[in-house]
Design a protein around this nucleic acid. Structure first.
Lengths: 351, 351
DNA sequence: TTCCGTGATGATAGCGCTATCATGCGATCA
DNA sequence: TGATCGCATGATAGCGCTATCATCACGGAA
């Protein structure tokens, strides 16, 4: 067993470098064709006759050959990588979207390179520069509020770009999302129609999407002549369930007759619910609660919580579809896709 | 504005291929040194004299040069990429861990390539093969239950490997995690000590870690002579808050005098709490609830929920530290790190 | 003085793959 | 029948970078 060196090992051993793994040249030799033919057979079998293809496939299996993505990327100046930029990895909203992206990509050749911007436009710019140096096949970025420099970088990148999560009319290239303004407005209108009059807004980490939801909330209240700046309670710290209670307390400190809250997201809504339970505030009679995103927990909470269902997972899938269509040269129906949202009315807002 | 072609563009235009971006050769020419010197200055400035370094840095900035990671990987047969394999992207446990990994890597040269195994060992094997074809700098994989083939693949990979999330004495290379068996046992012992006697187990998607928590639960109950197979209620579907209620109902159908449940994770525990509220079951008097992981929501729930706090984020950071130490040739204190857990006793288990 | 070691720099030759152009061959057309 | 075309295959030359070895200047030891 100790001298079982294969011929390949020996030839490799003589060379100075190399990985020891079979290369396209090894496959070519075994199959009795030129390396370039193997390359073609692997990338697009229709370019090679059936006989050669069979021989090549056999050789590939026999050697356990796997193409080197780095060599491929260098030679073709195009990496089989999609860069994905999200502001947070732990925010379930983006986690769902990223899951949609992975699912839609399946076990195809495209890999994902993920970047976490931590809600920082500067960090986003740095990551985009870094990603572009790899010549990705496409870039998927969150939001539409890039810095001017970032936008120029994206515009001059020669690959498909998809901006996700938001709706807007001036994407760098393609866009898929929904209107946060409309979502905030719809939720607030629902509370108004349900008969609530002192409707607060509770928000954490006021990123651009949160700001737009707030703007929608404000627009609805102003139309109904119910807006009051004191109704708005926000903080810059990142959102979490345990922030809901303190923010509600803040809000009640400013507006004692508060009878409803539109929470910037479901975590806060859940925290508000717990705080109400603890403080003995009846939901929905004394306090209505509406969340945003409609996470799974919302419909089982007691009382069940009204929320705005957002198409997070679908956004991920759709963005990849658009990228794949573009890469395959297929026509894109529309470069701007609005996937909408759906208000889920439940016990927490039924007076 | 239409004829503003720079000299670089013109020379590039003459060549058949190329990206149009400045290369190391451009920097070298501008700085008046050889390409290899630029390469050295970029990778390890101490190899190059201060004067040359200054000139090179200037040229880099002036040209906006960024190294091509693909070319680098090809030439050095080592990509600046760490492969990370997790079973789920939306499970907050892994999201926290991945966040720790990203945070510890910071803006260093190493990138992350993430793979989602969907709790499938076969998929894990496929992804590891794919990752290895890139010659990653390191691999971080979840759990210790790889297939035999996968384990061999990992053992023969010539890069650091860290298995995370679990504790065991036979890692492929390095390991950082904690004992799920002990966690399950500690939680169950707490319930026993608190005076509960009919303690159920509720679990979803019984992956290996869940199985070990169940084994810990069972061990504790058997020691106390309280075990009864009917106490265990599990399902294979993936865990979510809305599964807690139905599972509790199942459990109560089998064991009418159930007085406590140890939930496989916090989502289920939260679902169980809501179901109790809805069904009018007093927590903790008639039903104790204990979760696992101690997500943020647990301590603000009403009543607050007992849980086992797990070092998810820290596992991510530590795994990267171990990888970086190894890559830098620094000594590793111990290849096996047990980060432990901490039982957080709250209202939901205080009879 | 001679020699060798050391450290900085350079020349060369790939890494494994693919873009590009060249070749050969049979089919098609006037 | 010869010109022409399309198609399958091959030869060649890089993609942008780094491993390896070569070179050179300098300083200290013998």
């Amino acid at each position: 067993m100790k001298d079982d060196i294969t011929p390949k090992d020996q030839s490799r051993r003589a060379s100075r470098r190399g990985s020891g793994r079979p290369t396209i040249a090894d496959v070519a030799k075994l199959a009795g064709v030129a390396a370039i033919t193997v390359s073609r057979a692997l990338r697009d079998p229709s370019l090679v006759s059936a006989e050669l293809r069979a021989g090549i496939d056999t050789a590939v299996v026999q050697l356990g050959y796997a193409p080197d993505p780095n060599a491929r990327a260098l030679a073709s100046s195009r990496a089989d990588v999609i860069g994905v930029l999200v502001p947070s990895l732990t925010n379930i909203v983006f986690a769902d979207t990223v899951r949609g992206i992975y699912d839609e990509l399946g076990d195809g050749p495209l890999q994902i390179q993920m970047g976490n911007t931590h809600y920082s436009p500067r960090e986003e710019e740095r990551l985009i520069r870094m990603f572009l140096s790899q010549r990705p096949s496409a870039l998927i970025v969150s939001g539409i509020d890039q810095t001017e420099t970032t936008r120029k970088l994206l515009e001059s990148a020669d690959c498909p770009i998809v901006q996700i999560m938001e709706y807007g009319d001036d994407p760098v290239d393609m866009l898929v999302g929904f209107s946060h303004f409309d979502g905030g407005k719809a939720a607030t209108n629902h509370l108004i129609e349900a008969g609530y009059r002192r409707i607060g807004f509770i928000g954490a980490r006021m990123d651009p999407r949160s700001q737009r939801r707030l703007a929608g909330y404000r627009s609805a209240l102003e139309t109904a002549q119910l807006f009051d700046p004191k109704l708005v309670t926000t903080t810059l710290t990142h959102s979490r369930v345990s922030l809901g209670g303190p923010l509600l307390a803040d809000a009640l400190g400013k507006v004692t007759d508060l009878d409803a809250v539109f929470c910037n997201n479901d975590d806060l809504a859940m925290g508000v619910l717990f705080e109400c339970q603890r403080a003995g505030i009846a939901v929905p009679h004394s306090m209505a609660i509406c969340g945003f995103n409609d996470l799974d927990m919302m419909h089982v909470a007691y009382p069940s919580l009204t929320s705005v269902r957002t198409p997070r997972y679908e956004i991920g899938r759709r963005s990849v579809q658009m990228v794949l269509d573009r890469l395959a040269g297929r026509p894109i129906e529309s470069p701007i896709v609005n996937l909408g949202f759906e208000l889920q009315v439940r016990e927490s807002t039924a007076r």
